[in-house]
């Protein structure tokens, strides 16, 4: 898919400053600084256990950091009340590594769940349209009545993505979207991420160590090593780097 970049560098949708988080004696994030601009696809690249998932969970407030500040769309998420935080969360989509589809519900119920839970009244027609649109966006228009257990890994990932799109989020957080998928499906998902970003004009933070995905999706890459932003740049810059730590990712 041809990638059209439309990044607005004047508008920061996400601003993370001096973020520090440790679990016991293990420092997962040390003084981390990340900015995300409107319409940008930011890749956070790092080895397993380098604290990438923790970073995403700090952004949505699932994990409370020890130090630092997180600002999403101009709101400091750490100082919000529960209701305010829920409102901000409506604007953040989160695609979980394990998809997190509710096993006990059909695909359609899964998609409707965020709509119903955020306490906004939708008419039946609106819900139908939103579901249809989301399913078409991920290329699975006829799966509404299926249960998640009937779907393949790639389909689950698409449905999970469709669910995050239901509330038209301004920021989408992808937690290792291609992990556990075969290379062809991985590429499909990567392309889907790009097309979704262009369709809904959203900004994304993508955590991965799949270089194929990075190559397709990335506008900008942050290398995360030992809990710190080790190096920042686009795909071409980093792939030409002589640093052995960076080089090891691009082999």
């Amino acid at each position: 898919m041809e990638k059209i970049s439309s990044i607005d560098y004047d508008k920061k949708v996400l601003e993370i400053k001096h973020l520090t988080k440790s679990f016991g004696s293990l420092d997962v994030l040390c003084d981390m600084n990340v900015d995300l601009y409107k319409g940008e696809n930011l890749i956070v690249l790092g080895k397993s256990g380098s604290g990438k998932s923790v970073l995403l969970k700090c952004i949505v407030g699932l994990v409370v950091p020890d130090k630092g500040s997180i600002s999403v769309l101009g709101h400091d998420v750490l100082s919000l009340t529960t209701d305010e935080r829920d409102k901000i969360r409506m604007k953040i989509g989160f695609l979980f590594q394990s998809n997190a589809l509710y096993d006990s519900m059909t695909v359609r119920d899964n998609l409707e769940f965020p709509l119903r839970r955020h306490g906004i009244k939708y008419s039946k027609k609106e819900v139908d349209d939103l579901v249809k649109d989301a399913l078409e966006s991920v290329g699975l228009p006829d799966t509404g009545k299926k249960m998640p257990s009937e779907l393949s890994g790639g389909m689950k990932k698409r449905i999970a993505l469709a669910r995050t799109l239901m509330l038209r989020p301004e920021v989408i957080l992808y937690d290792e979207p291609t992990t556990g998928l075969d290379p062809i499906t991985s590429r499909e998902i990567s392309n889907l991420i790009v097309s979704v970003q262009q369709k809904y004009k959203s900004s994304s933070v993508i955590i991965t160590h799949d270089m194929k995905c990075v190559e397709i999706v990335a506008d900008r890459i942050i290398m995360l090593i030992d809990g710190k932003a080790y190096k920042e740049g686009n795909y071409e810059e980093l792939s030409k780097s002589d640093d052995p730590q960076i080089k090891s990712f691009f082999i």
């Binding site: 969970k57 949505v60 699932l62 829920d86 969360r89 409506m90 953040i92 989160f94 979980f96 590594q97 394990s98 998809n99 997190a100 589809l101 509710y102 096993d103 006990s104 769940f113 965020p114 839970r117 955020h118 306490g119």
Partner: peptide, 19 residues
């Protein structure tokens, strides 16, 4: 049930969905 929901991040997903 809750254990597997926890493990597959469904509980996190719920919290993110404002629940």
């Amino acid at each position: 049930e809750l254990g597997s929901m926890k493990v597959t991040e469904q509980i996190d997903a719920m919290e993110v969905s404002g629940t």
